[in-house]
């Protein structure tokens, strides 16, 4: 007898059902892993199950509401002052950046290199739920509707956060750089050494394997995205090297790094469209 949520139907024995559903699961996993056929089904199910996620987010929303309730005028004024100071500081930096950018473009033109195009960005709010235990994924309130695509890079104010791995109409799943299945090609900002940064599953640890004992890498080095692989644009901070161990019995260095992005704080991330700024932010180029 088949029972789905307690609704009895006549049918085959538990063993037959286990074999059939087991085979179905295996087929689903294969198609989901290898191709895009199931993406639309998953997107549909994500939309149907969204209310469950909203309900799960209620306790956190209440908590934030409570904190807002006890935020005083004085706190707000202090915060405002702090933000204004920060704003002024950033504006000053931006002035210098404009000059540098112009210089960079001229130099690149002289070298005959392709000029670097700025990226279009869109803020995305996080949905406060947890995902699979011991994986590192987040859910954001932007989806196919906002032209989000699979493989899209996601950043925050401090560095690269991860990439989009599933897209529904209003929602997307982002796999963080700390997820055990994630890898990102980087460049040591000091020495120009190329490496690949792997997630460890731990929230503030990244691994950099396959570096020989003579590799030019030091603790405190900033690793930026190298742009190889074509997923992430070049030049965004990814991680800071925290620990290097050289065990003579191992053929490679054991290098650990800490993500540059603040993966556990904040309620927003930025989705970026590499090299699209010219047509969206400033209008069509002449």
């Amino acid at each position: 007898m088949i029972t789905v949520f307690g609704k009895p139907l006549r049918g085959p024995s538990p063993l037959t059902r286990l074999v059939l559903l087991g085979l179905l699961s295996a087929a689903l996993m294969m198609f989901d892993h290898r191709g895009q056929e199931l993406d639309r089904i998953r997107a549909g199910l994500m939309v149907i199950l969204y209310p469950v996620q909203v309900v799960a987010g209620v306790p956190v929303a209440l908590y934030h509401g409570l904190i807002d309730l006890f935020t005083t005028d004085k706190d707000l004024k202090e915060q405002n002052e702090r933000l204004e100071a920060e704003h002024t500081r950033l504006l000053v930096q931006l002035q210098q950046l404009d000059a540098l950018e112009a210089e960079n473009t001229r130099l690149r033109a002289m070298l005959g290199a392709a000029s670097r195009v700025a990226d279009r960005a869109l803020a995305a709010e996080l949905v406060e739920v947890s995902t699979e235990p011991f994986s590192r994924r987040i859910l954001v309130r932007r989806g196919a509707q906002d032209k989000v695509y699979i493989g899209q890079p996601v950043i925050d104010a401090h560095g690269i956060v991860g990439q989009v791995t599933q897209v529904a109409s209003h929602l997307s799943t982002v796999t963080l750089i700390t997820d055990p299945s994630h890898a990102i090609p980087v460049l040591d900002n000091r020495s120009g050494l190329r490496a690949v940064v792997f997630g460890s599953g731990d929230q503030d640890n990244l691994n950099i394997p396959y570096l020989s004992a003579v590799a030019d890498i030091k603790e405190g080095d900033l690793l930026v995205s190298s742009g190889m692989g074509g997923v992430f644009p070049a030049g965004y901070p990814v991680a800071v090297v925290t620990k290097i161990e050289n065990d003579p019995s191992e053929s490679f260095l054991q290098v650990r790094a800490r993500p540059a992005a603040q993966l556990n704080h904040g309620k927003q991330v930025l989705l970026i469209w590499p090299g699209q700024a010219a047509t969206t932010a400033k209008g069509k180029a002449p």
Binding site: L21, S25, M29, D32, L38, M46, L49, T131
Partner: peptide, 12 residues
């Protein structure tokens, strides 16, 4: 679907 894991993994 909620976890964003491979479809069929927890089902199995």
């Amino acid at each position: 679907v909620l976890y964003g894991s491979l479809l069929g993994q927890h089902a199995l």
